[in-house]
């Protein structure tokens, strides 16, 4: 992918962080991204959804790490040192996304986002807001609000 696509500067321009999971490219609005870290071991949570890898310690803060691959139905990631955690801040919560690799930071025009194809997978429609086409590559824009672990019933 190229450095900095040359686009007219309009209000619709945003920066995105693109990353890969398996063969697919995804992206997040950079506004949500706090930092990018290498893989660190996490603490397993009991009764957690399968896509929640565990809790990590980020300088004293305790936050959950989500296996994005698992969350998107692309299979479980066996974390290794080559994996990357994107620390994001979404809906007042901090969360780590476990991904294969971070590719680039690109400026895009939000008008260029094409709608998600109407496929039957509920995950696709729920988690992908749309796609950007960048030099032959399809980059899927993640719906950050939907991707967060959903609050489960907490009866006592």
């Amino acid at each position: 992918m190229s450095e900095q696509a040359t686009l007219e500067k309009t209000d619709d321009r945003i920066e995105i962080v693109s990353f890969t999971i398996g063969e697919q490219a995804f992206c997040l609005d950079i506004g949500h991204v706090l930092e990018i870290r290498g893989w660190t071991s996490t603490t397993t949570l009991p009764h957690a959804p399968d896509y929640v890898v565990g809790m990590m310690n980020l300088r004293g803060a305790v936050l959950p790490v989500i296996d994005l691959s698992m969350r998107l139905g692309l299979g479980k990631t066996i974390p290794e040192s080559r994996h990357v955690i994107i620390i994001a801040h979404i809906d007042e919560k901090s969360v780590g996304f476990l991904v294969d690799a971070v590719s680039n930071i690109i400026t895009v025009n939000t008008e260029e986002m094409k709608p998600t194809p109407e496929v039957s997978s509920t995950k696709t429609t729920a988690f992908i807001r749309g796609v950007y086409t960048l030099e032959e590559t399809i980059v899927r824009a993640i719906d950050v609000h939907q991707i967060m672990p959903q609050e489960t019933l907490s009866a006592a």
Binding site: L45, P46, H47, A48, V52, M55, G60, A61, V62, L63, P64, K93, S94, V95, P149, E151, T152, S154
Partner: peptide, 13 residues
């Protein structure tokens, strides 16, 4: 360290 701040409450924890 609360778990609810960034996640949610977990049964048994």
């Amino acid at each position: 360290k609360g778990l609810e701040q960034n996640y949610q409450s977990i049964p048994g924890i």
